[in-house]
């Protein structure tokens, strides 16, 4: 099991670095899909099959499709190389170091006495047997009932995004003709 985990983690790291270095957008998008699949696999090992399914479907599926179609619409295949500046590296290193510093007091991976596992007591698993009248999947119970309100919020986010995309991309003929002159100076 450990070997699989190490291999997965190594692959994840390689993929992430590859995405950072790749100039060609098409390849970067493909690697993003792979990255999502690898994350989904690790989530599976970490006992979160529901999240793994969703990540595989949404992260590797829908978002890849969205990005590819955007690329097709914009037709820009390459990230133009430029002199790299030190600022982003500096910010990232500082942020990363802060986070690593923060891990030093964390409970170890899988520790049964971590606060997350001890609280609330009785745990959701124990409660849901009583409350949910035999619903086997506790994640579903949480999603639909205990924290159902977050799920309503999540649905609202999707609604917002849907309306927003309509709002951004819809163009009526009047407006298109009005903005034509200002767009006239764009190079072919």
């Amino acid at each position: 099991m450990n070997i699989i985990v190490f291999a997965l983690l190594a692959l994840l790291a390689i993929t992430a670095v590859a995405i950072a270095r790749l100039r060609e957008l098409w390849a970067a998008i493909m690697f993003t899909g792979i990255y999502s699949f690898l994350s989904a696999s690790w989530m599976m090992i970490l006992d979160a099959p529901d999240v793994a399914f969703t990540e595989a479907a949404v992260g590797a599926g829908i978002s890849t499709v969205l990005m590819l179609s955007t690329m097709a619409l914009t037709g820009q295949g390459e990230d133009i190389p430029r002199k790299s500046s030190w600022m982003p590296i500096l910010i990232v290193v500082v942020t990363g170091a802060t986070l690593v510093y923060g891990t030093l007091d964390m409970p170890a991976l899988g520790a049964p006495d971590a606060p997350v596992q001890l609280y609330p007591s009785p745990s959701y698993v124990e409660r849901s047997v009583e409350d949910m009248h035999g619903l086997p999947n506790v994640v579903t119970a949480l999603l639909a009932s205990y924290r159902g309100y977050d799920t309503l919020g999540e649905t609202t986010v999707v609604l917002t995004a849907g309306i927003a995309v309509l709002l951004i991309l819809r163009r009526d003929p009047k407006e298109a003709s009005a903005t034509e002159p200002s767009a006239g100076d764009e190079p072919a």
């Binding site: 609280y119 609330p120 959701y124 409660r127 009932s145 205990y146 924290r147 159902g148 309100y149 977050d150």
Partner: peptide
Amino acid sequence: DLGNWHPPYGI
């Protein structure tokens, strides 16, 4: 309490 689930279980 939303959905009548008291914290820490509910929102």
